[in-house]
Each structure stands twice: as structure tokens, then as C-alpha cells.
Amino acid sequence: MQIWEDFLGDPLILKGLRFLIWIIFIVLCIGFLRKWAKRRIENVNFRYKAQKGIEVIGYLLIAILILVTFTMESVKDYTIIIGLFTAGLTFTLQELILSIAGSFYIFFVRVYKPGDRIEINNIMGDVIDIDSIYTTIMEMGEWVSSDNYSGRIVKISNAFVFKGPIKNYSMDFPFVWDELNILVTFDSDVELAKNIIMDCSNDLLADYVDKSKANWEKMVERYYIENAKLDPTIAMRLTDNWVELNLRYITDYKLRRSTKHKLFESIGQSILATKGKVVLASTTLQLLKIPEVDVAVK
């Protein structure tokens, strides 16, 4: 009992306990106010910002509490405690520290924001939330083809912003280049096929091209990057079986799948309307008859 009384009688221990109690109290208040805002605020955008504001204010209070607690008396009284505390954080909480640092980096550098479509740590999806430790993503791909949601919500540590590349599909330039291949037979009118593909792509992609040009001019002014061709282009390639016409075009990053569908549908209908002048190619197999052999057995 005497040891316990001496332990509690130490002013440093009492100050440390008070500090811990205040930390727990602030964390509980943050959680309570976030839940209150979630229940009472109906506007989704305002509710999200309010929750983030509560969280930031709470962490600022914790930072102020740390400064006040460890600077009220002589620094020499806390040299050992601070040293051990720092060593413990560095060894056991390095991932947590990196995650918190990553959250500040994400917010201040604007690496990405809620609503952006990104790919990080080989996971692609739309960012739906960013907190002090995790980035929450609505996953795309995996067993689902093209740019469709898989239905899984993925939480990624914010520390990953320091560990690898981050692919942002929507920051500064919300357009992506895509391609599709049209295969026609060798006896088709290839020039007519090219004209059909270009006419269909120009009709469907005119709005994307006009909007992307304005955005690309800002990209050229801001970054060290050369100007790029944004209008649809066609490249032809001859194979053993057919003529391959490769269409390269630009589209909205959220409408890549639907744009490709519309292009295929429009080009297919236009080719059928040529009444055989352009024929879509397909893989064919030619079966040869084995010659008959007469075998005489004596």
C-alpha cells in the first residue's frame, strides 16, 4: 500500500493521469458530437463537413493540451518521460503516426478529395470518406468488368500516400483516353469503314472534345507537359485474318463504359447499313477433308 501511495503521490504521475483523463474525455466528446451531427443534420455535404470540423477541432484541443501539460514546468523534469514516450511512439505507433501525417498531407496538398476516382495500392474506386487514419473507397473492378462498383467498401491507411503512386482520374483533368478495335475483312471498303468510324465518333464525342480542350489548356499552363491531340484518331493494322482499325478517343472518366457501348452500337448499325460494302471480320476455321486411302491386306 505504501508503494501505491508513493506512486500516486508523485506529482509527475498525477499530472500524467490527469493528462490521460483529459485525452479520453476529448476523444469521447469527438465521438459523441460526430454521432449527434450524423443524426441531426440532413444535408449530406454539410453533415460531412461538420463531422470533419468536429474531428479537427478535437485534435487541435489535444495538441494544445499536450503543449500546456509539458511546458508548464521545467523541461528537465520531463526529459526521461518525453524520451521514452517518443521512442515508444516511433517503434510501436509508426504506422499510426504515418497515417495521421498522411491525412494532413492529403488535405493540405490536395492529393485527392471525397468524390475523386483514384487507384492506390492496386485498389481502384471512388473516395467516399477521408478521416485522420483511413481513406474509405467504394471499390471498382475485381470480379466486375469495366468501371463498375464491386459493392465492397475498402479502408486504406493514409500512410500509403508516402509509400507508392496515387493514380487520380479526376484531379485537374477529368477525362481519360480510351480505345476500341473494329475488325473488318480484307475485301471490305476500308476507306468507307474509316469514314464511318470517324463520323460516329465525332457525333458522339463532340462535347467531350470541346470540354477537354479547355481543361487541357490549363494543364499545359500549370505543368511541364506538351500539347496533345484530343480529337479522335484512327490507326490501321494488318493481321493474318483481318484489317484492324483502332479508334483512340477521349471521354469523361465516369462514362468510359457507356461511351464505348454507344460507339460500338452506332458503328455497328452504320456498317450494317452499307449492305455488304463493309463486313465485320470474325475468326474462321477451315476444315480440310482427309484424303481416302485404300489399303490392301494380303
Rank of each mutant, 00 (worst) to 15 (best):
I118W: 01
L204F: 03
R18D: 15
A296K: 12
E226S: 12
K213L: 05
Y105Q: 12
W143S: 00
I57V: 14
L204Y: 00
F32L: 15
T136Y: 05
D207R: 15
F104S: 00
T79H: 06
K194L: 00
K167Y: 09
N215G: 00
I250P: 01
I57P: 04
Y249P: 13
I118N: 02
P291F: 10
V293N: 12
V293M: 09
I23G: 02
N181S: 07
K218V: 11
S201L: 05
Q94R: 14
D199K: 09
V176A: 10
L98N: 15
C29T: 08
I196Q: 05
T239P: 04
L98I: 10
K194P: 00
R237M: 10
S212K: 12
M1I: 04
K52Y: 03
L60F: 14
N227G: 12
K260E: 05
K262R: 14
F173G: 00
S170Y: 03
Y134N: 14
A101H: 13
V278I: 02
T79G: 06
L96M: 07
F108R: 01
Y59K: 05
R257Q: 00
V190W: 07
T92H: 08
I166N: 03
F264C: 07
E221F: 04
I80K: 06
L8N: 07
R39H: 11
N215S: 06
F104L: 05
P232W: 00
I80F: 07
G58A: 10
E42D: 05
A50F: 11
Y105L: 07
V190Y: 02
Y169T: 00
F70I: 11
N43Q: 13
L65Y: 00
I26N: 02
V68A: 13
S150Q: 09
D6G: 06
S146T: 13
G53C: 12
F85N: 07
D240H: 13
S103P: 14
K35Y: 11
I133V: 10
S258V: 15
E42F: 01
